[in-house]
Nucleic acid binder design. Structure first.
Length: 270
DNA sequence: CCAGACGTTGTT
DNA sequence: GTCTGG
DNA sequence: CCAGACGTTGTT
DNA sequence: GTCTGG
């Protein structure tokens, strides 16, 4: 789950919406630093191993936007390749897993909890069993109120033998709410505006209390074109709503009144 | 003691 | 780094 | 997460 | 089937 997302909102707007300090407070490594901002471009189809703006608070300092690589590389890893597999961390076990627990429970200058800003994320719905040639249908999920999502994550640092520093993150996952459950059995942990500071700077007990499924009716979803399944495709079409064609022969007559949403495609879940 | 794992998702 | 398994 | 590759020798 | 790349 949550192996792809979109972030097309400009970093200055991200900072405003997520309460990240800009202006004088930023350091040279901030996404908002002029030389780093120059490299920014809107992204519609972000895959693991890519480097994206993430909100971190180094050693309890004021939260800032920094570029981190998606796919957590623990400090003890032999190489970066493990990161491709650790793009998610289960909320139910994040305090126990050796690769994750320090980042969660013992934040420091080079590891900790983070917020991953996203305009929305993608989820693939399994095709109904027995449908020949059926492939997974991707959906785009975004906040119903149009605001940015703040996904809960953890981050760590790894240094190569050549001394190159890699800062990387994983997205926490949990059981889905009502809308997400129609598509998939997991969803990212979402942090409400009023909980951001507590998530980033609170003690482990406070942070643990925020690992909850988002309330129902806070997300809206629509099917998107399958061409975005290739991570090489990265344009605004990736998040555009498409109307799904009904299965031609498999099911008897289906009611034609189908929205552009998932409501005509269910049956497996719930 | 050292060696080896350290993760999730989805599928069977 | 730290835990588990042998 | 999905898509795409999965290999060497020798020649250009 | 399994790993790598994006």
């Amino acid at each position: 789950m949550c192996g792809r997302y979109a972030l097309h909102t400009h970093p200055e707007v991200i900072a405003l919406q997520l309460g990240v300090q800009g202006g004088a407070g930023i350091d040279a490594r901030s996404t908002l630093a002029p030389e780093r901002l120059a490299g920014w471009k809107p992204r519609w189809n972000i895959a693991p191993t890519e480097t994206m703006p993430v909100v971190i608070a180094r050693s309890d300092a004021a939260p800032q936007l920094h570029w981190l690589r998606w796919g957590l590389i623990p400090s003890w890893a032999n190489d970066v390749s493990i990161g491709a597999k650790l793009n998610n961390a289960r909320a139910e076990s994040v305090t126990e897993k050796p690769a994750f627990r320090q980042a969660f429970s013992k934040p420091a200058s080079r590891r900790g909890r983070c917020l991953i800003p996203a305009d929305g994320y993608f989820e693939w719905q399994e095709a109904p069993a027995g449908v020949r040639g059926a492939r997974k249908q991707p959906y785009y999920l975004q906040q119903a109120n149009g605001k940015l999502l703040a996904m809960a994550g953890i981050w760590d640092s790894w240094q190569s033998a050549q001394g190159e520093l890699f800062e990387s993150f994983a997205v926490l996952t949990i059981a889905p709410n009502k809308e997400a459950a129609l598509i998939h059995e997991r969803m990212p942990v979402l942090i409400a505006d009023e909980d951001r500071q507590r998530w980033l700077l609170g003690n482990p007990t406070e942070a643990l209390a925020l690992l909850r499924t988002a309330p129902d009716d806070t997300l809206r979803t629509h099917a998107v074109d399958r061409r975005m399944s290739s991570a090489r495709i990265d344009d605004a079409q990736c998040i555009a709503a498409v109307k799904l064609n009904e299965p031609d022969e498999e099911s008897p007559e289906t009611k034609a009144a189908s929205s552009d949403s998932h409501q005509d495609r269910q049956g497996r879940l719930l």
